[in-house]
């Protein structure tokens, strides 16, 4: 944690730069969304990569996860893993990846 005055001044500078970066990336996201890629899924992919990058900046710099105690990392890693389980297992249960992949023909 930045505690001494010098460090705090330094971090203020960093914060402002990151704020600007976030603004720039937002503009980029908006513009890219109007540019039609071969499939819309690609658009979504690009948009999500940008958003994840922005979210990463916020989490690492603003929420100073770049230097946090080990305990917090453990808790968050566990949580994120579960959130991903939510994202994917829900969808896979309704749309089985095996059937999608063509390896398994559900009509046989």
């Amino acid at each position: 944690m930045a505690d001494s005055p010098e460090e705090i001044y330094k971090s203020i500078k960093k914060i402002k730069i990151v704020g600007l970066l976030l603004g720039v990336f937002t503009i980029a996201t908006v513009l890219l969304s109007f540019w039609e890629l071969p499939t819309h899924s690609l658009n979504i992919l690009v948009g999500m990569i940008l958003a994840t990058f922005k979210a990463g900046l916020v989490a690492l710099i603003f929420m100073h996860l770049n230097h946090e105690s080990k305990m917090i990392y453990k808790i968050l890693a566990f949580t994120i893993a579960l959130a991903f389980a939510l994202f994917f297992l829900f969808v896979f249960s309704a749309h089985d990846p095996l059937v999608f992949s063509g390896l398994y023909d559900s009509n046989q």
């Binding site: 996201t29 969304s33 658009n43 948009g47 958003a51 979210a55």
Partner: peptide, 11 residues
């Protein structure tokens, strides 16, 4: 919001 904005408004 960083995720909401593209998901709901843009994509």
């Amino acid at each position: 919001w960083i995720f909401l904005f593209p998901l709901l408004y843009l994509l």
